[in-house]
Simulated scan of single mutants.
Amino acid sequence: MKNVLFVTDPLAGLDAGIDATIGLMSASQDLGLDVWCCEPGELAVADGRVRARARRIRLRPRRPAGGDHRWIVDQAWWDELDVAVLDVAGFDLVHLRIDPPVEQRYLHTTYLLDLVEAAGTRVVNRPEGIRAMHEKLVALRFPELCPPTYVGADIAGLREFVARVGTAVVKPVDGFAGLDVWLVGDDHAAIALLESATHGGRRHVIAQQYLPAVAHGNKRLFLLDGDIVGAVLRRPCADDFRIGPPVAAAEIDDADRAIVAALRPLLVRHGLAIAGLDVIGGRLIEVNVTCPGGMHKTDALLGTRLSHAMVSRLIEPSRTYEGVSA
């Protein structure tokens, strides 16, 4: 039997009803793989080999909530079957699924997993690729695909940019999960908001022109080895300009295909097998590569099998998996 290791955050802190890592674990189990997991602190190197104190787990049954983006699961959603110290290169596949930001702990983990890749075991996503491709900034390599954007910490420069574009979404370069995201207009509040966003000019932020097309949806394109395997629409919440959970299937159009065609060589070259592209009104906003999410929610909402398709192709690259559509 093939086995897979998930290097992830503590299991107790994961939301089993929505977390994409758990969706990949569940799909792995459904496809007959043994599922093991460990935290970054449980990795070590001895005699040139990376070892992990890992737990073999079995996920308990789950079912879609019905018309929602969540799965119904037991509060205790997994059972521990075994604990062992194992050679990580002995796994058939290793998933790096630590939540961003890419800080010291994350970087140290990538350097250890470099040794696993050198030993011949595939790590998804490739550690070198995560270090090379900052998910908030990589889109700027393709300015023709993005809305007008300014990156910096200078409050005067940011204020000038906001005045030029009218309204901007401002977020920290190292931000994640919608934290510290600001909507800044060309008005008397702009300076105060920009001072707060940049911590008084000491923190780099990304400012992008606000796109009214977001009312029609922020499209998440799910990519596997540079190919689109699915798409879903997310919209701002009624009382919040930030993007909420998936709400409907998304049609893939020519603008999406052009964006993916431009990014594909870069993603493939750096081994970023699983990626999530955020697109608004045909403009590329972000390239999620550290711990791409949304698949598990989409599968629950739409009845798709994105997680299964990804696991199947990763474990058997030559196999075609027909199961993405509802």
Rank of each mutant, 00 (worst) to 15 (best):
R203S: 01
V268S: 06
R105C: 02
A16Q: 04
Q29V: 01
R105E: 09
A273E: 01
V123M: 11
V123P: 06
D240G: 05
R70N: 04
A139S: 14
H204D: 13
I72H: 12
G17C: 05
M295T: 11
I259W: 01
A250M: 11
A207E: 06
A153S: 14
D186L: 10
V151L: 11
E42A: 15
A76I: 08
E251Q: 14
L11A: 13
A65M: 11
I274S: 05
L81C: 09
G226R: 10
I280M: 08
H308G: 10
R56D: 00
A12D: 14
R131Q: 05
L194E: 02
F222Y: 14
G175D: 03
P100F: 10
F161P: 01
V88D: 03
D154E: 11
L14V: 01
T121P: 07
E135C: 02
F241K: 07
N218A: 09
T21A: 09
R305V: 02
A12Y: 08
V162A: 11
N218P: 01
P246L: 05
V116I: 10
M310H: 04
G303Q: 09
G271Y: 02
V165C: 12
A258N: 09
R60P: 02
V279H: 07
E135I: 04
E39T: 14
L301M: 05
D99G: 13
C37H: 13
V165T: 10
K2D: 09
V94G: 08
R313W: 07
G175F: 06
G230R: 09
A20S: 15
H188M: 12
L14T: 02
P245I: 05
I18G: 06
G90W: 11
V165A: 09
L11H: 01
T8K: 14
V279K: 08
D254A: 15
C38A: 13
V7H: 11
E39I: 01
D30K: 15
P265S: 09
T198C: 03
A275M: 05
R70L: 12
N218F: 00
A261S: 11
I98L: 15
K171I: 03
P64Q: 08
A213F: 00
D174G: 04
D240Y: 05
E128I: 06
A12W: 04
I57M: 09
S312P: 00
E251Y: 03
A163K: 14
L93H: 09
A12M: 03
A119N: 07
C291P: 09
D180R: 15
L113Y: 05
D299Y: 08
R122T: 12
H108Y: 11
G201F: 04
R126V: 00
R63A: 07
R62P: 01
D74Y: 08
P236M: 05
V85K: 12
